[in-house]
Simulated assay, not measured.
Amino acid sequence: MKIEGLNIEDNGNNNIIKIDDGSLFRGCKIVLNGNDHFIELGKALLYKGLVLNLKGNNKRICIGESNKNIKGVKIVSIRGDNQVVTIGRNFSCGGLEIQMNDGDECCTIGDNGLFSWGIKIRTSDGHSVVDLDSNIAINLPKDVKIGNRVWVGEDVRFLKGASVPDDCVIGSNAILTKSFTKPNCVIAGFPATVVKSNIRWDRKMPSEYNKKNS
């Protein structure tokens, strides 16, 4: 497979890459080591700086069709097997890094997500924290789930086990360490908490929105 703006290195067996016709790529690359990976990229207005770096086996990356620009997405999974990343339709992004380095973790982002830049998601720590009494690692990986129509500000961190429901706004520099269940909220801070409820967000500028709805 040869696509302008997309460099593909497939160093394994039985790996499948499906790319919808009509997508534009600039400075993108996919590097696959190991076997039985599945990559599916829906048509986007533009993929810029997309990097997929997978080692191990049986990993699945799916990005839905989008009428927006998807920029600076980097998905790295160089340890473990069976990780899954699913990003829904009409996703837009300025910069997102997803790290998955243990095994069997999932990262799910719903439809119509609006992501700023400098955002990071980690489903695992990469190294063990061991309880001295039991000699068992206690920091096991956990899935990260982000709902539909979530607006994420710049430099936000989602740590393992973080979950956000639909129609929420995540304030810049927030660090999410737990599951939130109430939709239509503003979530902000370190560690993140709900700072405002009963909201929805709109892509229009505030002055434009108020003028239209006054």
Rank of each mutant, 00 (worst) to 15 (best):
P183A: 09
S163A: 14
V164A: 02
D155G: 05
S179H: 00
K160H: 04
K160A: 05
D155C: 14
N184E: 14
V169W: 10
N173T: 06
W151K: 07
P183R: 10
G153A: 03
K182L: 08
F158G: 06
K178E: 14
V164K: 01
A174P: 05
A162I: 11
K178R: 15
F158W: 11
E154Y: 15
N184M: 07
D155P: 01
P165T: 07
P183T: 05
I170V: 15
L176F: 05
F180H: 06
T181E: 15
K178M: 08
D167S: 14
I187G: 02
D155T: 13
K178G: 06
A174M: 11
S163M: 13
I170R: 04
N173L: 12
N173P: 01
V152I: 15
N184D: 09
L159H: 04
L159D: 05
V169K: 01
C185L: 12
V156W: 10
K160W: 02
E154I: 07
R157G: 02
S163H: 11
A174S: 14
L176M: 11
D155N: 15
I187L: 12
N184A: 04
V164W: 01
C185N: 12
N173S: 14
I175F: 07
N173V: 04
V169P: 02
T177Y: 00
I187P: 00
